[in-house]
């Protein structure tokens, strides 16, 4: 029968062993997304491995050089952390506008970047979706796609990645700490997620036996001067239709020495905009420079009908985020 098996892991090692040997098994931490999928029979895993009992994954560790987040740190725990707020404001700001307080009390930083897309076709199991059922087609390409991606899509999938936290992490050059059957490894956060290409069902670069143990964030002046801005369809408790995580470092002459720009709600994965960052470098931090650089964000964007408004919204969101950030530097 299509029942659900449940296993409790005492250590990450035992968790990796179980998920490595059971096809389609999934780790459950906060469960705020996984339970929705179970309820609606959207890729329900046959086995969930609960890692909430694993020791050592609940801490936010701070030193002069870096901050480490354990995978089981709850979203609200990060928001309440003064050191993270001070050193990585964009991360805290992204989390404050994530979901609702109740969800943030349960959801973890390890699970959040691995939540599934909100694409309407992925979430309705009676419709075609290459991500849910490879080869069944993409319902969104010519369907109801006002929330779908204009960046990073393919002819097989234009589902947006829904996480705010992941956008801030991508902007601030976070490192993912991964544990698998063959031991530990590190992965730049920007390499955690995959583009859909012709395999949209493969969403990340973790091996079947690998789990996220936590993250490392290096303290930099750039990261301290970061900001997150989210545009959404209602006041709270809603995913972004467009968001931007930005960071700026100015030299003594007020010129932009370094910049980071990542965007969400518009792309198939947390999306760094290297060409915008490059365009900002060396410019005076003016509204004009921001607008000119932000305009480059949609150079390679492709709209699909209902989501065409994002071509206008994305550059404005980036420019506004940069303007708001400059005002408090």
């Amino acid at each position: 029968m299509s029942g659900l098996a449940y296993a409790r892991a005492a250590s990450l090692e035992s968790a990796t062993e179980v998920i490595g040997s059971h096809r389609a098994a999934e780790v459950i931490a906060g469960g705020t997304d996984l339970l929705q999928r179970l309820e609606e029979h959207v890729l329900p895993p046959p086995l969930v491995v609960d890692i909430n009992g694993v020791e050592g994954l609940r801490a936010i560790e701070v030193d002069d050089h870096e901050i480490r987040l354990g995978a089981l740190v709850r979203l609200n725990q990060v928001i309440e952390s003064a050191p993270v707020r001070d050193a990585f404001p964009a991360i805290v700001e992204a989390l404050i506008v994530t979901a609702s307080p109740q969800v943030r009390n349960l959801a973890t930083v390890g699970g959040n970047p691995l939540q599934k897309t909100r694409c309407l076709y992925f979430r309705d199991q009676s419709t075609p979706c290459n991500k849910r059922e490879p080869g069944s087609g993409c319902g969104a390409l010519e369907g109801r796609n006002r929330i779908n991606a204009i960046l990073g899509g393919s002819e097989h999938c234009i589902a947006t990645h829904p996480s705010d936290f992941a956008v801030a992490m991508a902007a601030l050059d976070a490192t993912v700490l991964v544990v698998g059957a063959r031991g530990e490894r590190r992965l730049p956060f920007t390499e955690l997620h995959r583009l859909p290409g012709d395999t949209p069902h493969l969403e990340h670069n973790l091996a079947p036996d690998e789990v996220i143990e936590g993250y490392r964030l290096t303290r930099t002046p750039l990261a301290r001067h970061s900001h997150y801005l989210k545009v959404r369809d209602r006041g709270e408790f809603e995913w972004a239709i467009c968001s931007a995580a930005v960071a700026l470092e100015l030299d003594h002459g007020g010129r932009i020495a370094d910049a980071r720009v990542a965007v969400g709600g518009v792309a198939t994965k947390p999306w760094r905009l290297g060409q915008v960052e490059t365009a900002l470098q060396g410019r005076q931090a003016t509204a004009e420079a921001f607008a000119e650089a932000a305009a480059l964000s949609v150079q390679n964007a492709v709209a699909h009908g209902d989501n065409a408004y994002k071509l206008a919204l994305l550059p404005r969101t980036i420019a506004r985020a940069l303007t708001e950030l400059r005002e408090r530097l």
């Binding site: 929705q36 609702s100 309407l120 076709y121 979430r123 419709t127 006041g235 709270e236 809603e238």
Partner: peptide, 30 residues
């Protein structure tokens, strides 16, 4: 006025946002 609509897919004959995560109603912040 601002957010409610059943998103009808006229190829499939389905309302695509048939749950409270995707069919938005006002929250306190609105």
């Amino acid at each position: 006025a601002l957010m409610e609509a059943g998103e009808w897919d006229d190829r499939l004959g389905r309302v695509m946002n048939a749950n409270l995560a995707e069919y938005l109603v006002p929250v306190h912040a609105d």
